[in-house]
Computed example of a mutant assay.
Amino acid sequence: MVNSMPVKPEILKVTQTASSRLFAVEELQLRFSNGVERTYERLATRGNGAVMIIAVDAEDNVILIREYAGGIDDYTLTLPKGLIDPGETPEIAADRELKEEAGFGARRLDFLKEMTSAPNYMGHRIKAIIARDLYPCKLEGDEPEPMEVTRWPMSRIDELVALPDFTEGRAIAALYMTRSFLEKEV
Protein backbone atom coordinates (compact mmCIF):
# COMPACT_ATOMS: atom_id res chain seq x y z
CA MET A 1 0.00 0.00 0.00
CA VAL A 2 1.28 3.47 -0.90
CA ASN A 3 1.20 6.14 1.79
CA SER A 4 -0.04 9.66 1.12
CA MET A 5 2.10 11.66 -1.26
CA PRO A 6 4.79 13.84 0.29
CA VAL A 7 4.96 17.52 -0.57
CA LYS A 8 7.27 18.06 -3.55
CA PRO A 9 10.30 20.21 -2.82
CA GLU A 10 10.31 23.81 -3.96
CA ILE A 11 12.65 24.45 -6.88
CA LEU A 12 14.63 27.54 -5.92
CA LYS A 13 16.85 27.69 -8.99
CA VAL A 14 17.65 25.69 -12.14
CA THR A 15 21.06 26.17 -13.77
CA GLN A 16 22.25 24.44 -16.91
CA THR A 17 25.81 23.33 -16.18
CA ALA A 18 26.64 21.46 -19.40
CA SER A 19 25.09 20.55 -22.74
CA SER A 20 25.77 18.58 -25.87
CA ARG A 21 23.87 17.81 -29.03
CA LEU A 22 21.73 15.27 -27.12
CA PHE A 23 21.94 16.14 -23.44
CA ALA A 24 21.62 19.04 -21.03
CA VAL A 25 22.86 18.74 -17.46
CA GLU A 26 20.99 20.83 -14.92
CA GLU A 27 21.68 21.69 -11.32
CA LEU A 28 18.55 22.02 -9.17
CA GLN A 29 18.55 24.05 -5.96
CA LEU A 30 15.74 22.52 -3.88
CA ARG A 31 14.04 23.26 -0.56
CA PHE A 32 12.16 20.34 0.98
CA SER A 33 9.02 20.75 3.07
CA ASN A 34 11.06 20.29 6.27
CA GLY A 35 13.28 23.27 5.32
CA VAL A 36 16.33 21.22 4.24
CA GLU A 37 18.02 22.58 1.10
CA ARG A 38 19.94 20.40 -1.33
CA THR A 39 21.50 20.60 -4.78
CA TYR A 40 20.59 17.84 -7.24
CA GLU A 41 21.94 17.23 -10.74
CA ARG A 42 19.99 15.69 -13.58
CA LEU A 43 20.03 15.02 -17.28
CA ALA A 44 17.20 17.30 -18.34
CA THR A 45 14.33 16.23 -20.53
CA ARG A 46 14.36 17.48 -24.10
CA GLY A 47 12.06 16.87 -27.01
CA ASN A 48 8.81 14.92 -27.05
CA GLY A 49 9.91 11.71 -25.35
CA ALA A 50 10.48 8.32 -26.90
CA VAL A 51 8.75 5.05 -27.70
CA MET A 52 9.74 1.41 -27.27
CA ILE A 53 7.91 -1.05 -29.48
CA ILE A 54 6.99 -4.59 -28.45
CA ALA A 55 6.06 -5.97 -31.86
CA VAL A 56 4.39 -9.39 -31.77
CA ASP A 57 3.85 -11.26 -35.03
CA ALA A 58 1.02 -13.66 -35.95
CA GLU A 59 3.07 -16.65 -34.69
CA ASP A 60 3.44 -15.02 -31.23
CA ASN A 61 7.09 -14.04 -31.72
CA VAL A 62 8.49 -10.73 -30.52
CA ILE A 63 10.55 -8.75 -33.02
CA LEU A 64 14.00 -7.83 -31.67
CA ILE A 65 16.85 -5.80 -33.11
CA ARG A 66 20.57 -5.91 -32.52
CA GLU A 67 22.15 -2.47 -32.47
CA TYR A 68 25.27 -0.74 -31.28
CA ALA A 69 24.74 0.94 -27.89
CA GLY A 70 27.24 3.74 -27.26
CA GLY A 71 26.55 3.83 -23.52
CA ILE A 72 27.96 0.32 -23.07
CA ASP A 73 30.21 0.33 -26.17
CA ASP A 74 28.81 -2.96 -27.43
CA TYR A 75 26.08 -4.48 -29.56
CA THR A 76 22.93 -5.34 -27.69
CA LEU A 77 19.77 -7.30 -28.43
CA THR A 78 16.75 -5.15 -27.61
CA LEU A 79 13.36 -3.86 -28.73
CA PRO A 80 13.00 -1.22 -31.45
CA LYS A 81 12.76 2.28 -30.03
CA GLY A 82 13.23 5.92 -30.93
CA LEU A 83 12.30 9.52 -30.38
CA ILE A 84 8.84 10.95 -30.91
CA ASP A 85 9.17 13.61 -33.61
CA PRO A 86 7.35 16.96 -33.32
CA GLY A 87 3.69 16.55 -34.30
CA GLU A 88 3.68 12.76 -33.85
CA THR A 89 1.58 10.80 -31.40
CA PRO A 90 3.35 7.97 -29.57
CA GLU A 91 1.50 5.48 -31.79
CA ILE A 92 2.58 7.16 -35.03
CA ALA A 93 6.17 7.35 -33.75
CA ALA A 94 6.05 3.65 -32.77
CA ASP A 95 4.83 2.61 -36.22
CA ARG A 96 7.49 4.76 -37.93
CA GLU A 97 10.34 3.49 -35.74
CA LEU A 98 9.23 -0.12 -36.24
CA LYS A 99 9.33 0.42 -40.02
CA GLU A 100 12.75 2.11 -39.85
CA GLU A 101 14.44 -0.33 -37.48
CA ALA A 102 12.76 -3.68 -38.11
CA GLY A 103 11.05 -3.40 -41.51
CA PHE A 104 7.47 -3.87 -40.27
CA GLY A 105 4.39 -1.72 -39.98
CA ALA A 106 1.59 -2.42 -37.51
CA ARG A 107 -2.17 -2.20 -38.00
CA ARG A 108 -2.81 -2.45 -34.25
CA LEU A 109 -0.98 -0.37 -31.64
CA ASP A 110 -1.79 -0.47 -27.92
CA PHE A 111 -0.25 1.83 -25.30
CA LEU A 112 1.22 -0.30 -22.50
CA LYS A 113 3.03 1.96 -20.01
CA GLU A 114 5.24 5.00 -19.65
CA MET A 115 8.58 4.14 -18.03
CA THR A 116 11.59 6.01 -16.70
CA SER A 117 15.24 5.05 -16.30
CA ALA A 118 17.19 6.22 -13.25
CA PRO A 119 14.55 8.88 -12.40
CA ASN A 120 16.74 10.27 -9.59
CA TYR A 121 19.17 11.48 -12.27
CA MET A 122 17.27 11.64 -15.58
CA GLY A 123 13.97 13.05 -16.73
CA HIS A 124 13.78 10.75 -19.74
CA ARG A 125 10.50 8.91 -20.28
CA ILE A 126 9.69 6.19 -22.77
CA LYS A 127 6.25 4.95 -23.79
CA ALA A 128 5.97 1.21 -24.34
CA ILE A 129 3.66 0.40 -27.26
CA ILE A 130 2.50 -3.10 -28.25
CA ALA A 131 2.41 -3.51 -32.05
CA ARG A 132 0.42 -6.31 -33.68
CA ASP A 133 -1.09 -7.27 -37.02
CA LEU A 134 2.32 -6.68 -38.60
CA TYR A 135 3.07 -6.34 -42.30
CA PRO A 136 6.37 -5.86 -44.17
CA CYS A 137 7.21 -2.19 -44.65
CA LYS A 138 10.68 -0.62 -44.59
CA LEU A 139 11.39 3.09 -44.17
CA GLU A 140 14.81 4.72 -44.26
CA GLY A 141 15.84 5.80 -40.76
CA ASP A 142 18.79 7.56 -39.22
CA GLU A 143 20.62 4.39 -38.19
CA PRO A 144 24.28 4.32 -39.25
CA GLU A 145 24.10 0.63 -40.25
CA PRO A 146 21.37 -1.93 -40.96
CA MET A 147 19.78 -3.51 -37.91
CA GLU A 148 19.87 -7.26 -37.44
CA VAL A 149 16.24 -8.32 -36.93
CA THR A 150 15.44 -11.43 -34.89
CA ARG A 151 12.18 -13.13 -33.92
CA TRP A 152 11.88 -14.70 -30.47
CA PRO A 153 8.92 -16.76 -29.18
CA MET A 154 6.95 -14.93 -26.48
CA SER A 155 6.64 -18.31 -24.73
CA ARG A 156 10.43 -18.27 -24.18
CA ILE A 157 10.86 -14.79 -22.65
CA ASP A 158 12.65 -16.22 -19.60
CA GLU A 159 15.35 -17.67 -21.89
CA LEU A 160 15.67 -14.36 -23.74
CA VAL A 161 16.12 -12.41 -20.51
CA ALA A 162 18.89 -14.85 -19.49
CA LEU A 163 20.95 -14.08 -22.61
CA PRO A 164 24.11 -12.07 -21.85
CA ASP A 165 23.40 -9.53 -24.63
CA PHE A 166 19.77 -8.82 -23.66
CA THR A 167 20.34 -6.44 -20.75
CA GLU A 168 18.16 -3.34 -21.09
CA GLY A 169 15.92 -3.13 -18.04
CA ARG A 170 13.13 -1.26 -19.82
CA ALA A 171 12.99 -3.91 -22.56
CA ILE A 172 12.88 -6.70 -19.98
CA ALA A 173 10.06 -5.00 -18.08
CA ALA A 174 8.16 -4.29 -21.31
CA LEU A 175 8.29 -7.95 -22.36
CA TYR A 176 6.90 -9.23 -19.08
CA MET A 177 4.17 -6.56 -19.07
CA THR A 178 3.31 -7.45 -22.67
CA ARG A 179 3.04 -11.14 -21.80
CA SER A 180 0.58 -10.27 -19.00
CA PHE A 181 -1.34 -7.90 -21.27
CA LEU A 182 -1.71 -10.53 -23.99
CA GLU A 183 -2.68 -13.30 -21.50
CA LYS A 184 -5.55 -11.11 -20.22
CA GLU A 185 -6.89 -10.78 -23.77
CA VAL A 186 -7.25 -14.54 -24.24
Rank of each mutant, 00 (worst) to 15 (best):
V2A: 14
S4L: 09
M5I: 15
P6V: 14
V7S: 13
P9Y: 01
E10V: 12
E10M: 13
V14D: 02
T15C: 05
Q16P: 02
L22G: 10
F23H: 13
A24H: 08
A24I: 08
A24F: 04
E26Q: 13
E27P: 01
L30Y: 04
S33M: 08
N34E: 14
G35L: 12
T39R: 15
E41C: 09
E41D: 01
L43T: 11
L43F: 15
T45G: 13
V51P: 02
I53H: 06
D57K: 06
N61G: 01
I63G: 04
L64I: 11
E67S: 14
A69R: 10
G70S: 15
G71V: 13
D73N: 12
D73M: 13
T78R: 11
L79Q: 08
L79A: 05
L79H: 10
K81H: 12
I84C: 09
D85L: 13
G87I: 09
P90A: 11
I92G: 04
A93T: 04
A94H: 05
R96V: 05
R96L: 04
R96Y: 01
E97Y: 05
E97I: 15
K99L: 07
E101G: 11
E101I: 08
G103A: 12
G105P: 00
A106E: 03
R108L: 14
F111D: 04
L112I: 08
L112M: 07
E114A: 12
M115P: 03
T116C: 09
A118R: 12
A118K: 06
A118C: 08
P119M: 13
G123T: 05
H124G: 14
R125P: 02
R125K: 11
I126T: 14
I126C: 11
L134P: 06
Y135P: 05
L139H: 02
E140L: 14
E143M: 15
E143I: 06
P146M: 15
P146H: 09
E148D: 15
E148V: 15
R151N: 07
P153D: 02
M154E: 00
I157K: 05
D158N: 14
L160M: 10
V161P: 04
A162G: 05
P164E: 03
T167M: 00
E168W: 04
G169N: 06
I172C: 04
L175G: 01
M177P: 01
M177V: 04
S180V: 09
F181V: 07
E183Y: 01
V186Y: 02
V186E: 00
